[in-house]
Amino acid sequence: MDDVLVSEKLVKKFGGVVALDGVDVEVRSGEVAVLLGPNGSGKSTFLKISAGVVEPTSGRLLVFGREPYRDVEVRGRISYMPQDAGLYSSLTGFENYLFYAAMQEVDRGRALEILEMVKDELELDEWFFKRKVGTYSGGMKRKTSLAVALGSDPDLLILDEPTTGLDPASRRVFWRLIERLKRTGKTVVLATHLFEDAEYLADSIVVMYRGRVVARGSPEELKRKTGYRYAVDVELSSEPSKALIEKLKLPGTKMIPSGGFRLTIIGNSIDFVSEVEERLRSVRVVSFSMRRLSLGDAYFLFTGVRLE
């Protein structure tokens, strides 16, 4: 498969602040690529360069073989949904949709055809056509914003934190739509700090931290790369003592602080679980559970910080 998006040694500085520091990313055609990282990791800046809004300081980024920040034609194949919706609050969702479709040189007839296709999927009811955006809830705004982004039937869809702040039902609407787009051969690049989104949607994940790419691969690849497979979550009745923490440091395992009186211990072989259980006999344990290594655990191992 061809690469839809390629960045090479991409650097972006805002004054003295380095937002991107030599980022190399490839996104293949028809895949959902997820940029995973906390706020300030450079995800949004990368997306803005990909959408052609901001120029890099050095390096380059190509979309369909062209630089979107210099080539207006290639921007016709891209659609960008910014984090802050960028919708006019005094216009209805429908008016916003038609306005941005016109900016993408999509004629009204075609725009209405596309809207007809996504209307039910995004649950765009009467409110979308009759009410001004200023009266919408957060979920309505996100749905409208996504409809606006889909209005030009783009080959590459760039979504910045599309599901942040949405209720579970609305998130599932987004997931279903992104899955459907993928099935029709569209490429999606989205930024998120939600592991659930990444794990469910991503074909490939680019883990970003402080303007750098610290890991990449599919969710399973990323977990495999950590060298660990299992995790044990322990909740204690009081704060674990230093002696207990030392006692739980088993060979081939690693401890992840989970906040409060909780601990997560990860290991490669399932054998460490019974050993941990044994060493906790002398303390009062509220809960004890075993699971497979999560994307969040892997993220911690790559960056040293917890996202959720």
Binding site: K48, A51, V53, V72, R75, Y80, M103
Partner: peptide, 14 residues
């Protein structure tokens, strides 16, 4: 400031 221009300039608009 309100982000309209970012979205506008990600389109075919010169």
């Amino acid at each position: 400031r309100r982000g309209f221009l970012h979205r506008l300039l990600s389109t075919r608009l010169e």
